[in-house]
């Protein structure tokens, strides 16, 4: 993860070491340079696994692909979520290694139990795969709380994998998931580092606070 750090330093030195006016005026150029650096760095990232074996990676990829399936738009598979999870488990989420080590065989045992003759999740049809996952997903759909932070060390393998898959699909692409910004394209998030108004549909043509207040007062008077 050297590249993001140097990119950050580049941006920060711009902000701190030069006059702010200059930085504001030159943001687009700075960002273009930073984006270029970022893309150069990304293509050098090797796609190899450190925690998962090849078979395990195939299984995890298959499960993640039911959590965020590939349909008319790309899903967890295209976003390289399995690589993100592999990196999680060897860096900041080492605590969850056990959950995967124990969870995956338990899930495969469930596959055998539900579909005799099959031992791999990835060998099932999509419908069968969903059946297996439903059998693990005991969380009430209404039990969600507004989440500010993840719950590392969640004991439930499916829940942990669900969280990791969503994170790997949507994290800023600079941080090892969401390959090529795939997840952001799916949800409609522009991959820019800065934005300008109008931001969306409803603030287009906004006349300014004072003018808007006057307009609305006039309308009220007409009524």
């Amino acid at each position: 993860m050297d590249a993001p750090v140097s990119r950050r330093s580049f941006l920060a030195h711009g902000a701190g070491g030069l006059s702010a006016v200059w930085v504001s005026a030159h943001w687009p150029a700075l960002l273009a340079a930073a984006t270029h650096a970022r893309q150069a760095a990304r293509s050098a990232v090797p796609a190899k696994f450190e925690f998962f074996g090849a078979d395990e990676a195939k299984e995890i990829d298959a499960i993640a692909s039911r959590i965020i399936p590939s349909d008319e738009t790309p899903g967890a598979h295209e976003a390289g979520v399995v690589y993100f999870i592999d990196r999680c488990l060897t860096t900041f989420d080492i605590d969850d290694q056990k959950t995967y080590r124990e969870g995956l065989p338990a899930l495969q045992a469930r596959v055998k139990e539900m579909f005799p003759g099959k031992s791999k999740f990835s060998a099932l049809t999509a419908e069968q795969q969903d059946e297996v996952l439903h059998s693990f997903d005991e969380q009430s759909p209404h039990g969600r709380q507004r989440r500010f932070r993840a719950s590392p060390g969640a004991q439930n393998f499916f829940e942990t994998l669900r969280e990791h898959t969503i994170e790997g699909f949507l994290v800023d692409p600079d941080y090892g998931g969401n390959r090529d910004g795939t997840g952001w394209k799916v949800i409609g998030r522009d991959r820019e580092h800065m934005f300008q108004p109008p931001f969306g549909y409803y603030d287009k043509g906004y006349p300014g606070w004072e003018a808007a207040a006057k307009e609305e007062m006039k309308e009220a008077e007409k009524k």
Binding site: R66, I67, I68, P69, D71, T73, G75, D130, L133, D137, Q139, P141, H142, R144, Q145, R146, R147, F148, A150, R162, E163, T165, I166, E167, F169, L170, V171, G183, W184, V186, I187, G188, R189
Partner: peptide, 25 residues
């Protein structure tokens, strides 16, 4: 983006799968 996927959608939204992805998108 991540916190939206966990807490920004209507409570009846499925927690994973095609409908989850569609609602998120």
């Amino acid at each position: 983006p991540i916190s939206f996927a966990f807490g920004g959608m209507p409570p009846e939204t499925p927690r994973w799968g095609k409908a989850f992805k569609a609602t998120l998108a």
